[in-house]
């Protein structure tokens, strides 16, 4: 009688649905921090601010991203503002990009305004956001085209 409970304890609990995933929340006042000794293998999506000091192997989408000195990112970075002081292997796409002297960027930078400090290592193309589509850019977050398709379907 009791031995049965040992056999399939997990299966028994399955019918009760697991809690539903919460809806994405508003940006928090403070930035999320990926600390120096943390290694993430996967993607990060953030509607607020993100500070990366550790290693990320995956894509980052955020409102603002700061890649700190000593941080390593392997993957694309998409945000509204990006500050790079660490190393990135992958494409960076943001309206505002600043590259510090300690940075090492291997990949393209798609930007509207770009600031590069003397001493930064840059290996890749720098393109303006407006020319992104023509140059075969990456998946769109905010398209540069001014066409307003959405107005027709607005309810």
């Amino acid at each position: 009688m009791f031995s049965q409970s040992n056999k399939q304890p997990e299966a028994k609990s399955q019918p009760q649905a697991s809690p539903p995933a919460p809806a994405p929340r508003k940006p928090s006042a403070e930035p999320s921090i990926i600390s120096a000794d943390l290694r993430v293998v996967g993607d990060l999506h953030c509607s607020g601010d993100l500070q990366v000091k550790g290693n990320v192997e995956g894509d980052i989408k955020s409102r603002s991203v700061s890649i700190g000195e000593g941080a390593h990112v392997q993957g694309s970075v998409m945000a509204e503002t990006v500050h790079i002081a660490g190393s990135i292997k992958g494409q960076v796409e943001a309206p505002a990009v600043t590259v510090a002297r300690s940075a090492r960027v291997q990949g393209d930078i798609v930007h509207q305004t770009l600031a590069v400090e003397a001493g930064a290592f840059l290996d890749g193309n720098c393109r303006h956001l407006d020319n992104k589509a023509a140059a075969g850019g990456i998946s769109p977050m905010k398209t540069a085209k001014p066409e307003e398709k959405k107005t027709a379907t607005a309810s």
Binding site: R25, K26, P27, I33, R39, V40, L44, H45, G54
Partner: peptide, 22 residues
């Protein structure tokens, strides 16, 4: 404030694995 302290705030979603000694 230490180097080993990671904070994942409510606006961040991580799809993947995390590993740290902190």
């Amino acid at each position: 404030a230490s180097d080993t302290y990671t904070v994942i705030h409510s606006d961040l979603v991580i799809t993947g694995d995390l590993r740290t000694d902190g």
